[in-house]
């Protein structure tokens, strides 16, 4: 796919919806998410807990339990229909075409295998080759993610590494088979602040060097500003605003994005209150008929409660779903 036309999106997600069906209720975890991702681009999915960020990622990788998760919409990656993949094609798609970095490096590595065994298993699964070749490649990967003395660390068990090193090993594992798309599910949330920056810088550098498209899930606006080309803000399962990172974070169009930005801690004096958004997110089992943010929105109009706003494009390359945003 590398030789394709550069402007053509690598990933095309159209109207993706994920419902979790249980006997008692249906949870609308993701509703009608639409976005594109160009080769080499970094998209940040931004939103609070339970807004559907992680579910969107898992849907892209088909990791959701097939019985309970009802997925609708269309996901195309490099011309292939992801939602139709089955069996072997699905298994080589996972890990080979798309790779994922998990939030908790502590639990995402199997404690009974060494780092090297993890890497070699994935390499040999996707690329084949002898054990010696796989080991050599594994050491290269550990070197690539800047793990010091990789020849020795390759035989370390996960518990013998620090959190930062473990997350680096996790990144190496994700990169082991040269994916076109990297999904990162809050990869820095579980790390110390100092290590967070190191891992972010590393991810950004690797992403540039290897030219991977990346979807990065976070609830940290600072992280988004650091790493993203574009951001998509999610609220109650919907993408409510999407656009280039600088524009969205400097001049948010949606009142929710504006509220998020206003509630961050920056240069205020210590005695000043932080502007919080009143209320709490809606119950995903019973979404309001209109805009799901309207009950908390200071700028809500009567029309807001009638129907969810359609995507509008008030400025080129920016999408927002809010009646208020139309006249900029």
């Amino acid at each position: 796919m590398d030789g394709g036309i550069a402007s053509l999106p690598l990933l095309h997600v159209d109207g993706l919806s994920v419902d979790f069906v249980t006997r008692e209720a249906t949870v609308h975890a993701v509703s009608d998410a639409t976005f594109n991702l160009k080769p080499g681009e970094v998209l940040c999915l931004l939103g609070e807990s339970g807004s559907g960020k992680s579910v969107t990622l898992r849907a892209l990788m088909r990791l959701l339990p097939e019985k309970r998760a009802r997925i609708a919409g269309k996901v195309t990656l490099g011309g292939r229909d992801v939602l139709a993949l089955q069996g072997n094609a699905l298994r080589s798609f996972r890990g080979g075409t798309v790779a994922m970095i998990f939030q908790e490096p502590m639990t995402a590595l199997d404690p009974v295998y060494t780092i090297g065994q993890h890497l070699m298993e994935a390499i040999r699964r996707h690329k084949g080759g002898s054990r010696a070749e796989a080991r050599k490649r594994a050491i290269e990967l550990l070197d690539l993610v800047k793990i010091p003395s990789p020849e020795r660390r390759i035989d370390a068990y996960p518990h013998e590494l620090s959190g930062g090193l473990r997350q680096r090993a996790m990144i190496a594992l994700a990169l082991s088979c040269g994916p076109q798309l990297l999904l990162a599910d809050e990869p820095t949330t579980a790390l110390d602040a100092t290590v967070q920056i190191q891992v972010l810088v590393l991810l950004r550098r690797l992403q540039k060097e290897l030219g991977m498209s990346t979807i990065f899930v976070t609830h940290d606006l600072g992280v988004a500003a650091e790493i993203a080309d574009r951001v998509a803000v999610m609220y109650a399962g919907r993408i409510i605003e999407e656009g280039p990172v600088d524009d969205v974070l400097r001049a948010p169009l949606h009142p929710y994005t504006a509220g998020l930005l206003a509630s961050t801690v920056h240069d205020q004096s210590p005695d000043q209150d932080i502007a919080a958004i009143p209320g709490s997110p809606p119950d995903l089992r019973r979404l309001p008929p209109g805009c799901s943010f309207a009950p908390r929105c200071a700028k809500a109009l009567p029309a807001c409660n009638d129907g969810f706003p359609h995507p509008t494009y008030p400025v080129a390359d920016r999408m927002v779903r809010c009646w208020r945003a139309l006249p900029l």
Binding site: M61, L63, R91, S92, F93, R94, G95, G96, A99, M100, F102, E104, T107, A108, L109, D110, P111, V112, Y113, E121, A122, R125, H126, M170, L173, A174, S176, C177
Partner: peptide, 29 residues
């Protein structure tokens, strides 16, 4: 239900491989 089982699935392992490597490895002890 641990993350590394999902991680194994995310890196393309089939059910049998997951049981053989990750489940048995942790259950045999």
């Amino acid at each position: 239900n641990l993350d590394y089982i999902e991680a194994a699935r995310a890196s393309g392992a089939g059910t049998f491989a997951i049981i053989r490597h990750h489940v048995l490895g942790n259950v045999l002890g």
